[in-house]
């Protein structure tokens, strides 16, 4: 559950899909070792990667590691033996990669890391494509600052799983975003474990503890699923989510756009499933022009509000396997 949260967030999918049109990678064979399919986001990342590869004429060799590092190492060794042109890896854990990545380096096969970093020498991989989780939280905080203006605003926070990196970073980012605005105060913060059910239960508790919710101005959830649960709790308490209590969250999954279209959510920050697009671009420049890309490619943390055609976004995303 917490796994998919360790991912990064980024650029507008539609924009990337349309700009990355040059097909200079056509005919190249690229191996992709995916973690597994533990979450909807992961499934979306897999389907977007396949679509990006097909669009560029890449022959993508896909390997599902079922959340096991040994499977990923086996897959990478398999790719090396097949003599692929490049390897994409979404690493399941951060340690233990030195040996197999050295083998890839000796075979002169560039490796690109997707959405998670590793603890290994930086010369063992070409680049890593990931989002900035702190920035995700900051974008959400800045949206709230802009939206409430000078009015006093008590915010309740639904944290991710205690101790997980997205929970820590998204909390820190949000606090940075609202820093210096004394009218916005974080009054309550509890973990909803990134799930709908816990998000709903925690929000119910907050609503009771804050005088039936009348003193709550906004709820900030570390992911959209908890926000969807909170929206139901707000409705059960006889209040209107989206107007009585503002709802801002992170991820941009289809269901939050459905809520936004119904006027029940106010903003979400996208964690793009398109990590492969920038990775293919970097490989294209490297394999065809010899340009060494930046070591860390950070994807965009795009803010979506009801002004961004939520119904259309919902329709566009629901087929991606979220």
């Amino acid at each position: 559950m917490a796994l998919y949260k360790q991912l990064a967030l980024g650029a507008g999918l539609a924009a990337l899909l349309s700009t990355a049109a040059h097909a200079d990678l056509s005919g190249k064979v690229i191996g992709f070792s995916q973690i597994g399919s533990e979450s909807g986001w992961r499934a979306a990342e897999t389907s977007v990667t396949k679509a990006e590869a097909e669009k560029r004429g890449v022959d993508l060799k896909f390997a599902d590691a079922q959340q096991k590092q040994e499977n990923q190492i086996k897959a990478i060794r398999g790719f090396i033996a097949q003599g692929v042109d490049a390897i994409l890896v979404a690493p399941v854990v951060s340690t233990g990669w030195d040996e197999v990545l050295t083998e890839a380096k000796e075979a002169s096969i560039p490796v690109v890391l997707l959405d998670r970093g590793i603890d290994a020498s930086q010369d063992l991989y070409l680049t890593s494509v990931a989002s900035d989780q702190v920035k995700e939280g900051r974008v959400a905080g800045e949206w709230l600052v802009k939206t409430v203006g000078d009015k006093p605003c008590n915010v309740v926070e639904l944290q991710g799983t205690v101790g997980s990196s997205p929970a820590i970073n998204r909390k820190q980012g949000f606090e940075e975003g609202i820093a210096g605005h004394a009218n916005i105060t974080l009054t309550r913060s509890q973990t909803g474990d990134f799930t709908r059910a816990k998000g709903k239960e925690v929000m119910e508790g907050f609503l009771k503890a804050e005088g039936g919710g009348k003193s709550i101005c906004a709820v900030y959830a570390h992911n959209d699923d908890m926000a969807v649960g909170a929206i139901q709790a707000i409705k059960d308490a006889g209040l209107k989510p989206g107007s009585d209590i503002l709802v801002v969250s992170i991820d941009a999954v289809p269901d939050i756009f459905a809520a936004m279209a119904a006027g029940e959510a106010n903003a979400t920050v996208e964690l793009t499933p398109n990590m492969a697009g920038p990775a293919f671009d970097a490989l294209d420049a490297f394999l065809n022009g010899g340009t060494v890309p930046e070591k860390f490619i950070i994807t965009e943390s795009k803010l979506y509000t009801p002004a961004d055609n939520p119904q259309g976004e919902y329709e566009a995303r629901k087929g991606l396997g979220y």
């Binding site: 559950m1 979450s39 474990d193 709908r196 059910a197």
Partner: peptide, 16 residues
């Protein structure tokens, strides 16, 4: 009950 509660079947987390 838990499925009806969140109006969705969350196979990863329901009853975890």
């Amino acid at each position: 009950i838990v499925t009806g509660d969140i109006r969705g079947a969350d196979a990863n987390n329901a009853g975890l």
